[in-house]
């Protein structure tokens, strides 16, 4: 990606304005976001970097339509997510968003291929489930159950599942958080590849600064605020990352 391109020349996919989020965790009230404004652009690879509890997962969940902010507005293209009812949010996720979770969230009772098909069945323009698994290099393990796959393989199945619907945006929450370095790199390669080959707008949450090197832009979060936004002049390929 050419860093000299001014960001304003590209279409904004997400536009969040002054969002805050307070939620109840057991008997404790948590201020997860305290007024965050941010924009994500078409086709870019963004890393949301922050320590545990900085509010990055909350931000991602709000962008993905999984959660609503306590205040502020969020737009996806022309659509105001904050004004959508739950069924419109479901429709939005179904048609536009691919998720990758830290703990994979695969359905243990379904095989790799069936996990992907679970999503392609309800998508409007899906790719073939096997092609999706092929993209993450797991075509030959398609009949294995999650319990028969390693953590990295499970996460790649989760990525295949996320992209199989041809989503406009791919949201990844600590995709390598539960993985060792080697496996983590394989998973990041898969994500990078999807971003480049399919042009899917991609946001990755991590607390690992090393991963930020592969992003177009890095948004730093701290204690529910945006602490800074950095643009990488040179992107490092996933296979060259070390931590």
């Amino acid at each position: 990606m050419n860093s000299s391109n001014p960001p304003t020349a590209r279409q904004s996919v997400f536009r969040a304005v002054d969002i805050a989020k307070i939620y109840q965790m057991g008997e404790v009230q948590v201020h997860a976001l305290r007024g965050v404004s941010v924009e994500l652009y078409e086709g870019e690879f963004v890393v949301l970097l922050g320590a545990s509890g900085s509010g990055k997962s909350t931000l991602l969940n709000i962008l993905g339509g999984l959660d609503a902010p306590s205040s502020g507005t969020v737009h996806y293209l022309d659509r105001e997510l904050t004004a959508s009812d739950p069924s419109q949010l479901t429709r939005y996720r179904r048609d536009n968003v691919g998720f990758v979770f830290q703990f994979y969230n695969l359905i243990p009772s379904l095989t790799a291929r069936e996990n992907v098909e679970l999503i392609t069945e309800i998508a409007t323009e899906p790719m073939d489930a096997l092609d999706a698994l092929d993209l993450v290099g797991l075509k030959d393990r398609s009949d294995h159950f999650p319990a028969q796959l390693s953590g990295g393989e499970q996460q790649r199945v989760a990525i295949a599942r996320a992209i199989a619907k041809n989503p406009k945006v791919l949201l990844c929450d600590e995709p390598t958080g539960a993985l060792d370095v080697q496996t983590g790199i394989v998973v990041l390669q898969a994500i990078g590849q999807i971003n480049q080959q399919l042009g899917t707008t991609t946001a990755v949450i991590t607390h690992n600064a090393e991963i930020a090197k592969m992003a177009d832009r890095v948004i730093l979060l701290s204690d529910g605020h945006i602490a800074g936004i950095e643009r990488n002049s040179t992107k490092v390929a996933a296979q060259d990352l070390r931590w």
Binding site: G64, R94, V97, N105, L118, I119, I122, A123, R161
Partner: peptide
């Protein structure tokens, strides 16, 4: 819980 969350995240309706 987490399976339900994944289903919903991917657009399965309530």
């Amino acid at each position: 819980r987490e399976q339900i969350a994944a289903l919903k995240a991917f657009g399965y309706s309530d």
